[in-house]
Computed example of a mutant assay.
Amino acid sequence: MSAGGHDDVLAAEVLTALAAWQIPIVQFNGMVAERVGMGWTDLQALYVLANHGPATPTDLARRVNLTTGSASRMIDRLERAGFVRRVPDRQDRRRVLIEPLPAAVARVGSFYDQLNELHRHDLADMTHDELRTLARFMKAAAASTEAAIRSL
């Protein structure tokens, strides 16, 4: 055991497996983006909106790591293609929110149905404690990755 209480060899194995999984995930997302006629960053933006709710253009730009000018062009593309719409913010009518269109989210989401079913199968034989540990790691890894992005 290391000083942090983790087996260094097993931790390295987990990180290697995670890195190996990231490659096909990126490839899969790229294929989905291509199939629905959008770029990779546009797909990320739709994911952010579908999973975190409507956002101001500035917030959306920050979440997908774009300048506000690039995000504005991306929002225009997504709106023209029927993936999002601009709506007034109910809290502050001077602001505009970008919200995903449910039919578009369902259409794009349908490409993930088979993959999600395969992942459910992958998780099926794990215990409650294993799943809880895996979920805790994935949440921490997401936060750490976002912190690393901000530091770049």
Rank of each mutant, 00 (worst) to 15 (best):
T145Y: 12
M31N: 15
T145H: 05
Q27V: 11
R136E: 09
L115H: 09
G5T: 01
A141H: 14
G4L: 08
A147N: 02
G5V: 02
L118Y: 11
G53Q: 06
M1K: 04
G4F: 12
V105H: 05
D7K: 04
P88V: 04
D7S: 05
V14L: 09
D122L: 13
R136I: 02
N116V: 11
A103Q: 11
D8C: 05
P88W: 08
F28W: 15
M31D: 13
Y112H: 11
R85G: 05
A103K: 10
R77D: 07
I98W: 00
F111C: 01
G53S: 05
A140R: 01
P100L: 03
L101Y: 03
A55E: 06
A148I: 01
T16P: 00
D113L: 10
L60I: 01
R107F: 11
E13V: 09
A17P: 00
A17E: 09
V84I: 10
A61Y: 01
T133R: 15
A17T: 07
H52Q: 13
A148H: 13
E146P: 02
E99N: 02
G53P: 01
T56V: 05
A33V: 01
L43I: 06
A19Y: 04
I149H: 05
V9G: 08
S2E: 08
H128V: 12
A50Y: 08
P24A: 05
L131C: 11
R77A: 05
H128F: 13
G5Q: 04
V48S: 01
R35K: 14
V84W: 01
A3C: 08
G30A: 05
Q44L: 07
E130A: 15
E117N: 15
V26N: 10
G39C: 03
R93A: 09
P24N: 07
F83Q: 02
I149M: 07
W40E: 12
D122W: 12
D125T: 15
L60M: 02
Q27L: 13
M31S: 11
D125Q: 15
T127K: 13
A17Y: 11
L152V: 03
A148T: 07
I25A: 12
D59H: 10
P54N: 07
S110K: 05
A141E: 08
R62N: 09
L134N: 15
T145I: 13
T41Y: 04
R63A: 10
Q27A: 14
V87N: 02
A103M: 09
T145N: 11
P54V: 00
H52P: 03
T58F: 00
R90F: 09
N116W: 15
D76K: 13
D125W: 15
Q27H: 15
E34K: 09
R63H: 07
A33M: 03
